[in-house]
């Protein structure tokens, strides 16, 4: 809209900013108690579009605030580099649909290595392109990690994740809280 100068009356926000706001306001009662003993490690992908290309540090910080609240600060491991300087997953810009599969996978090897270096069992990817690409990298290069949407782990932490909403969880959490 900024690009085309289309006048609009509404404001734009991201669901991640709302999650953060609702947690601070106490409306969203979520915490990391569920992971206190399990100590399952999580990392996060910074989607280029909402981090480097738009809200930058503000979004990177908010994303980590939400995720650390849900999985526990001690169970969060950042990639190196991260935030505004994180690498693109390699699935963006239409690459997943672009047809240059070999190049897309070579590109994504950097992301795969970053994920593996964290030792995390779960990668939270708050963007569909990132989600699909990081999952494909795991299958292609033989990673043991799982890729999650943020809402999955939030609902799991609140004990409200339904039986049929668990397709991205690994065997360790597949039945957790049911």
């Amino acid at each position: 809209m900024r690009r085309f100068n289309i006048p609009h009356k509404f404001e734009f926000t991201s669901i991640i900013q709302l999650y953060g706001q609702w947690i601070r306001e106490g409306k969203l009662k979520v915490n990391s108690d569920w992971n206190k003993d399990l100590k399952i490690k999580f990392t996060v992908q910074d989607p280029c579009n909402i981090v480097r290309k738009t809200l930058r540090e503000e979004m990177a910080d908010e994303l980590r605030f939400v995720l650390k609240t849900v999985v526990g600060e001690e169970n969060f491991v950042d990639m190196v580099p991260c935030g505004v300087n994180n690498y693109c997953c390699g699935g963006g810009g239409g690459a997943l649909q672009g047809g240059f599969t070999e190049e897309r996978r070579a590109y994504g090897k950097i992301k795969f290595d970053q994920v593996m270096a964290t030792g995390a069992k779960y990668v939270v990817a708050p963007c569909h392109n990132c989600h699909a690409q990081i999952e494909d990298m795991g299958h292609h290069y033989g990673g043991e990690y799982h890729v999650l949407h943020l809402w999955t782990i939030m609902c799991l932490a609140m004990g409200i994740l339904g039986e049929n909403e668990r397709s991205y969880l690994g065997p360790d959490l597949a039945n957790f809280g049911l």
Binding site: C48, R52, K53, N85, Y87, C88, G90, G91, G92, G93, G94, A95, G98, G99, F100, E103, R104, Y107
Partner: peptide
Amino acid sequence: WVCTMCAR
């Protein structure tokens, strides 16, 4: 089409 316009 291989560059993802990631802006790094």
